[in-house]
Simulated scan of single mutants.
Amino acid sequence: MVKVVSCLAADLEMESVDDLTKVIDSIQDSGLSGESVNAERDDDNAVFLCSKCKRPLGDTCGWKGSDPEEHCIMLKAVSTYVTVEKEQVLSKQPSEYGCIFENLLCSGCNSIIGKIYRCTPKQFDFKRDLFCLDVDAVDSYIFGSASQQAVPESEEPVLFENRMALEEEIEKAKAVLAVLQCKLASLETSLLHDKG
């Protein structure tokens, strides 16, 4: 499967572009503004990066959908690292007959990362004037997917609030240990006297 879908699907436990589309569409259909989506659904937000130079190209806040047949994701907005070629091209692919588009370039490495359709037949109107990023040219980072921690939760440092209680427990343990040590010493002494 293509890279961006694989990354997103693995992190969100999905298997296809359709599953990813459903999740992102459900976020946007919930009627939340982009700001609210960020606050309430950080686990579903992602940043799309150029697969060659890793510059950020866009994010799921600009998500409009995907086209699994063409292996592209469609965004209504992209970052300033995406440049649009001025030259318009008439598509020569049979699946896009009659489409006029402009190539999208990553300004960091000048690689072609997708298209923006300017003129389309009726069946492709859903793509017109959207940034269609080729999933083979895009990597992604899912917010909240980082798993490495500087201090594991099981080894959290002792805080000042807990220090007094911890010191009391240590003193109790020392007292019990001292009593046990005295009993052991008296047992050893009585055993030595019984043998002797």
Score class of each variant (00 low, 15 high):
176 V>S: 10
14 M>P: 00
172 K>E: 12
183 K>I: 13
110 N>W: 05
60 T>P: 04
64 K>D: 00
13 E>Q: 15
46 A>P: 03
120 T>M: 05
170 I>R: 12
168 E>P: 03
82 V>I: 12
185 A>F: 05
79 S>Q: 02
157 P>M: 03
67 D>N: 07
179 V>C: 06
92 K>R: 15
147 S>L: 09
125 D>S: 15
55 R>V: 13
88 Q>N: 08
128 R>W: 06
179 V>D: 14
72 C>F: 03
85 E>K: 13
164 M>V: 14
48 F>T: 01
130 L>C: 04
87 E>Q: 14
37 V>K: 09
19 D>V: 05
66 S>V: 04
3 K>F: 11
115 K>S: 00
56 P>I: 00
141 Y>N: 07
87 E>D: 10
126 F>W: 06
122 K>V: 14
27 I>F: 09
61 C>T: 11
158 V>H: 01
71 H>L: 11
190 S>R: 11
164 M>A: 15
18 D>R: 09
7 C>I: 15
1 M>I: 07
119 C>I: 12
163 R>A: 13
110 N>C: 08
104 L>A: 04
120 T>E: 01
108 G>F: 06
128 R>L: 11
7 C>M: 11
16 S>H: 07
21 T>Q: 08
64 K>L: 07
153 E>Y: 06
67 D>S: 01
23 V>P: 02
71 H>S: 11
78 V>T: 06
20 L>F: 13
36 S>E: 15
66 S>T: 06
126 F>Y: 15
121 P>C: 05
182 C>R: 15
32 L>S: 00
64 K>F: 06
150 A>T: 14
32 L>Y: 04
17 V>G: 05
75 L>Y: 02
166 L>Y: 08
169 E>M: 13
105 L>E: 05
103 N>L: 10
108 G>D: 04
95 S>G: 00
125 D>R: 13
108 G>W: 05
58 G>S: 00
147 S>M: 09
146 A>G: 08
139 D>H: 10
186 S>R: 14
63 W>T: 03
48 F>H: 01
143 F>Y: 12
175 A>N: 10
64 K>M: 12
61 C>I: 12
168 E>V: 07
73 I>S: 01
183 K>P: 02
2 V>R: 10
190 S>Y: 01
40 E>I: 15
179 V>N: 08
64 K>I: 06
194 D>L: 11
142 I>D: 03
105 L>S: 01
77 A>C: 07
49 L>I: 12
143 F>L: 13
106 C>T: 07
154 S>C: 08
184 L>Y: 09
78 V>A: 03
131 F>K: 03
42 D>E: 14
95 S>L: 12
36 S>Y: 11
32 L>F: 08
80 T>A: 13
173 A>H: 07
115 K>Q: 05
22 K>W: 07
112 I>W: 05
118 R>Q: 09
12 L>S: 01
56 P>R: 01
131 F>L: 02
150 A>R: 09
